[in-house]
Design a protein around this nucleic acid. Structure first.
Lengths: 194, 194
DNA sequence: ACCTGAACACCGTTCAAGT
DNA sequence: ACCTGAACACCGTTCAAGT
C-alpha cells in the first residue's frame, strides 16, 4: 500500500512519544514504516520540514478563543503548554520548528497573540514583538518544566525545590508579568492594572 | 605537546566562528587539533560539557554591573546580547547550554537578574522565575535576530520588514515590557511606573 | 596520566534505476 | 508517480592497548 504524509507523521509522533526526540531519526522512521530512507524524501524535502509537520500535529488541539484580551492570551498560552506537555520532548520539538519557521500553527498562535496585544493598546509596530516575547516565555518555561518532569519519571531523584512545586501556578505568575507589562505599554491610558 | 582544555575550547570557538554550530563536531575538532577523537574524552565527559565550556568562553566579557535595578537588568541583557552576536550561532549554542544546565556563566546571569527582581520588590519565591523569563526573552530574541542576520550575510535577500529595522531599539522595547511587568508585580506599592 | 586505533552503532541526503 | 538500493560523507562514544 502507498505511503501517505499522514502515515509518516502518525508514526513520527508515535516514535516521539515512545522514545523521545533523540531517537526520532529519518532512518529509524523509515525502518518502522517498512520503507527505505529515501522514500521519505519523496514526501518531505528534509528532516526540518518533517519535524514541522509533527509540530503542527502536536498543536492541532489548539483552537481560537475569545473574550477580553488578557483572557485570550492566558487561554492561548494554557492551550499551548498543555499540548506541549502531552508529547515527550514536545516543547523542544516545537521550539526548534518555531525557530526554523516550519510550523504554521505557531504562526497562527503568533497572530492571535499579536492581535490581543493590539487590542491591549500596543502600537501595531510593536504588537508582534510583544507576541513573540510571550511565545519565548511559554516555550522556555515549558521546555524547562518538561525536562524536569521527564528526568523525574526516569527515576532520577531531582531536587524538589520551589521550582518543582505547583508548576501551573508558577506558569500563571510568569505570564502575568508579561500581560502586566503589555498593559503598561498600552497607548491608551491604563485603566485597571491591578 | 600536551593537549589542554584551553586549547580545545580555543579551537572549538574558532571552528564555531568560521563554520557555525552545525560543523562543530567532536571529530572535526579532533582533526583540527591533530589528535584522535578519543583524546577529547579524556578532557571532557561528552559533547554537551564541551559546548558548555564554549558557552562560558563566549560569555566571558560579561561583568557585574551596579546601579538601580532597572539599569542592572538592561545592562546585563545588553551585555548578554552583545556577547551572543559576537560569535556565529552564539545565541543557539548558549541557549542549548543553558537548557542543559551546562553553563556556569548563565547561572551567574540568572542570579544577577533574580537579585534585581528581588530589589524591584518581587517576592523571593518568584524572583528566579522573573529572571528566567527575562533570559528566555534575550535568548529567543537574539537567536531570531542572529538567524536573520546570518541569512542576510549569506546573500539571501530576506524580506526587510519592520522586523529587520533597528533591532537594538526593538530589543529595548521588548525588555521594557518585562521590566514594567516586574515593577507592577512588586509587593511594594508602585511608585513610578511611567 | 594521557593518548591512539579501531571498532560499534548509528546519522541525513542523494540519485540512478526500477515498477 | 512513487519507491528501492546503494552509496557518500559523515556522526558521538567507548575502550583495550600503548607510552
Amino acid at each position: 500500500m502507498q505511503l501517505h504524509k499522514r502515515d509518516v507523521v502518525d508514526m513520527a509522533t508515535s516514535l516521539l512519544d515512545n522514545y523521545g526526540i533523540a531517537d526520532l531519526s529519518m532512518r529509524r522512521l523509515a525502518r518502522e514504516l517498512n520503507v527505505s530512507p529515501g522514500a521519505l524524501y519523496w514526501h518531505f524535502a528534509n528532516k526540518q520540514q518533517l519535524l514541522g509537520a509533527v509540530a503542527d500535529r502536536i498543536l492541532q488541539p489548539l483552537g481560537e478563543v475569545d473574550g477580553e484580551w488578557r483572557m485570550r492570551v492566558s487561554a492561548t498560552c494554557a492551550q499551548l503548554r498543555d499540548a506541549l506537555l502531552s508529547h515527550t520532548d514536545g516543547a523542544e520539538l516545537v521550539s526548534a520548528s518555531f525557530a526554523a519557521g516550519q510550523s504554521e500553527s505557531m504562526t497562527a498562535v503568533l497572530d492571535r497573540l499579536a492581535s490581543a496585544a493590539r487590542e491591549a493598546g500596543v502600537a501595531s509596530g510593536h504588537a508582534e514583538l510583544a507576541a513573540r516575547t510571550v511565545i519565548y516565555y511559554v516555550l522556555g518555561f515549558t521546555a524547562d518544566e518538561q525536562s524536569r518532569l521527564q528526568w523525574d519519571a526516569a527515576g532520577a531523584d531531582v531536587e524538589h525545590t520551589v521550582w518543582t512545586e505547583d508548576p501551573s501556578a508558577r506558569f500563571t505568575f510568569g505570564l502575568r508579568l508579561l500581560t502586566d507589562g503589555i498593559a503598561t505599554h498600552s497607548d491608551e491610558p491604563v485603566t485597571s492594572v491591578l
